[in-house]
């Protein structure tokens, strides 16, 4: 599992897409911290709690609204590429299927955690303050997206289809999540409990539920992958 996790983690840094995404994150962190004072001066409506986290708003916005697109864009074929090219046979004959799925999931989740941690460190250098809860909330979202990506890659065997879906879902997900969170329609509002935004609205530990949801998705991916013929 560790070998697979390590490879996926390192692979995530390679390629032009990764470099662009990392650059977007780091630049957002830098300017988010740099312009936080300017943002504060624009309005007096901010609560004291909001003022505390204003410098991380750029990163939070990025991970909420573009996170799914970024995670899926980088890793949509994390499992099905290996099945398509049959390299998965080298893995399933060597280790358990659980190790493969968990290793791959941890690899991409760790990549996003490192990206976020680096971004928060950059912010903390500027504002001399480290927002641990916001970091964990953002990381929980990244972990949720990573689990969803792994699940989709297990369910759909063709990389070309997951590539298309990564764009569609990446754009639709935050819109859909925002809608189910805000709607008063009782038939769909319950869906907010399955989406992550509901659990990161407040500065508390309810983000742990997001990790639980991610765990459920990885569990489903495992159940499907165990029955999958490679």
């Amino acid at each position: 599992m560790l070998a697979i996790c390590k490879r996926e983690f390192i692979q995530s840094f390679k390629g032009i897409k990764s470099i662009i995404i990392i650059a977007i994150f780091l630049l957002t962190a830098y300017y988010s911290a740099d312009f936080s004072d300017l943002l504060l001066s624009l309005s007096d409506d901010f609560t004291s709690e909001e003022k505390q986290i204003i410098h991380t708003v750029g990163i939070s916005f990025l991970i909420m609204f573009l996170g799914m697109l970024f995670v899926m864009g980088l890793s949509h074929d994390i499992v099905n590429r290996e099945m398509h090219e049959r390299t998965i046979r080298f893995l399933v004959t060597r280790t358990s299927r659980t190790s493969i799925i968990v290793g791959k999931f941890l690899g991409i989740a760790l990549f996003w955690f490192v990206c976020l941690l680096t971004s928060f460190v950059i912010i903390s250098i500027f504002v001399h303050r480290f927002d641990l809860i916001t970091l964990f909330q953002s990381a929980s979202l990244a972990i949720y997206y990573s689990a969803f990506t792994v699940l989709l890659s297990v369910l759909i065997p063709k990389p070309s289809i997951t590539m298309f879906l990564s764009i569609v879902i990446g754009i639709a997900f935050p819109i859909l999540n925002g809608w189910v969170s805000l709607t008063s329609n009782v038939w769909v509002s319950w869906l907010k409990y399955l989406f992550p935004f509901y659990y990161v609205e407040e500065q508390n530990y309810s983000f742990l539920v997001v990790l639980l949801l991610a765990g459920v998705m990885v569990g489903i991916a495992l159940l499907v992958f165990r029955r999958r013929e490679c």
Binding site: E85, R86, R94, S96
Partner: peptide, 14 residues
């Protein structure tokens, strides 16, 4: 699995 080695029929490599 640690004790077996497998060369599958269609070998696509990384």
């Amino acid at each position: 699995k640690k004790k077996i080695g497998v060369m599958p029929d269609y070998s696509s490599l990384y």
